[in-house]
Design a binder for these strands. Structure first.
Lengths: 108, 108
DNA sequence: TAAATATGAAACTAATTGGTTGCAAATGTA
DNA sequence: TACATTTGCAACCAATTAGTTTCATATTTA
């Protein structure tokens, strides 16, 4: 089961968990209190998030604290880079459809 | 079937399609040539991307050109904003687990 | 030591996913 | 008009997903 950061954030519950533990580490029980689902369901989400290294955990007594690995979140931003180049320059104002058709015409 | 931008980019094929048409609009046939899968599979991906408004299309004769709606991509960036605040400030250097435990101690 | 608490894992299920093949509709071309 | 091209849609299928319930293990507490 290959885990992927984009697949991990596809689920709304997982995005909510990520946002929840972003500022401070939390235990599975504490996280589950914020949702309607069972603790076990949260636990499965935490497992998936751990597998793709978006979160890590640390045991303290019988509690296990989960925290966000903020550096991993940067990978999403890195993927967006290629599109930022498009929307940050004024390139977006050109009609790429017209470009495509014109190019095709020129090839004839 | 609720379509969501995060669910849309979860699939690697769809991310590839997005990157492919980012600079210039393309027809389903042209897009499919870049992949191993069938034209119909590409068509289904285009449908999903259209449903969440990440792409739009325009018919020219019997061809249909699909283009990226770059503004919609910004929504991913907007979601990332909350985490950028964390990684851009040096807040990340604080150990949030220690914070949490200390806070808990203080509450006793 | 016994009971309570915190957690993960396994087994099961209904719904969704991503792919396929086959077909119909619309448009362009000979 | 007849035929080729471009496309979307429906039906089907195997794999995956997100949830549940049940159970086992480890740690703290009475």
């Amino acid at each position: 089961m290959r885990r992927d950061i984009f697949q991990a954030i596809a689920d709304p519950s997982r995005r909510a968990i990520i946002a929840l533990i972003a500022m401070q580490a939390m235990t599975p029980n504490a996280i589950a209190e914020h949702f309607d689902t069972s603790r076990q369901a949260v636990s499965k989400h935490l497992k998936i998030l751990t597998e793709c290294e978006l979160i890590t955990n640390q045991q303290v007594g019988r509690e296990i604290y989960y925290r966000l690995e903020i550096d991993k979140m940067k990978e999403i931003d890195q993927w967006l880079e290629q599109f930022k180049k498009i929307w940050e320059t004024k390139f977006e104002q050109l009609d790429n459809l017209l470009q495509t058709i014109q190019k095709k015409e020129n090839e004839k």
